[in-house]
Design a protein around this nucleic acid. Structure first.
Lengths: 141, 141
DNA sequence: TCGCCAAATGAAAACGATTTTCATTTTCAA
DNA sequence: TTGAAAATGAAAATCGTTTTCATTTGGCGA
């Protein structure tokens, strides 16, 4: 990783190493706050801005991307080779990934036919997950 | 519209009427600021909060939904019967809609097979639109 | 190894869009 | 007409994000 960053013109630091490691250990879609909390457990001298900047850096070097559900909080999602979409449960706020390879193919085709060259895709579904179906019926709000 | 709102428990006011009308006249995906500016041309006494609250109201009664591209600005998009996705041009910031009826069908199927009950779909593609292809090659950044 | 310079860090402040508060006005059903 | 509930406008509060600035650090070249 140090070498990888060097080729991009960035330096390695203890803080950065911890932040990167923590980020990649999680398979969740973390927010700055969440990663900050996690990183703090290892080193409580790391500043919030540092976590934020490194999350941005991870995106800049192409290892993650920002995800926006619309709740006002930006999350960071590791970029994997397989294009995937997200199922957001509006009850438990959980996120599940689904493979959308074929869908992306169709989408790209549709975009291309309109002279649009796709760069990245975002496919999100909001709804209620399996585990939350019981809960919803029971409450009024 | 007045009757419609009444059934939902809301009242009609001159400001509300102007805001609703202005919103539905636009087929663009407007932000609060944009709609505020537009509404102000008709009545410069309307407050920002009123425009914001009414945009939220339009969503609450199911006539629009919030769209988030990730630029930090929430836009409001009329809900139409035909599910559609968005093509966001990263060069000119333009938005084009595409029909994604079949895609949504496939998505719903995929979600259902995992016990997930879909509620709404968000399909977004970032890339370069037809008109901007020429521009991009020319500049370094 | 030493010194330098660009990059990185931490704390705090700045930003900016969104949301709330509060006093006042308005709608609308009785 | 009248009262209760809802809506409005202005201003302030929120809150996540981003920048500033002084200081420290990493890592290359001498």
């Amino acid at each position: 990783m140090k070498e990888f960053l060097k080729t991009k013109g960035f330096k390695m630091t203890p803080q950065r190493e911890l932040i990167f490691r923590s980020f990649f250990e999680l398979d969740e879609h973390v927010s700055v706050d969440e990663l900050y909390d996690r990183v703090r457990q290892q080193d409580n001298s790391i500043g919030y801005a540092t976590v934020w900047r490194n999350l941005k850096l991870i995106c800049k070097v192409g290892l993650a991307e920002e995800v926006n559900i619309g709740d006002g909080i930006t999350r960071y999602d590791r970029i994997t080779k397989v294009p995937h979409g997200h199922l957001f449960c509006t009850v438990c706020k959980g996120v599940t990934e689904i493979n959308v390879e074929q869908l992306v193919g169709l989408l790209a085709q549709a975009a291309n036919s309109r002279g649009f060259t796709p760069d990245s895709f975002k496919i999100e579904v909001q709804g209620v997950c399996d585990g939350c179906h019981g809960k919803v019926e029971g409450n009024g709000q």
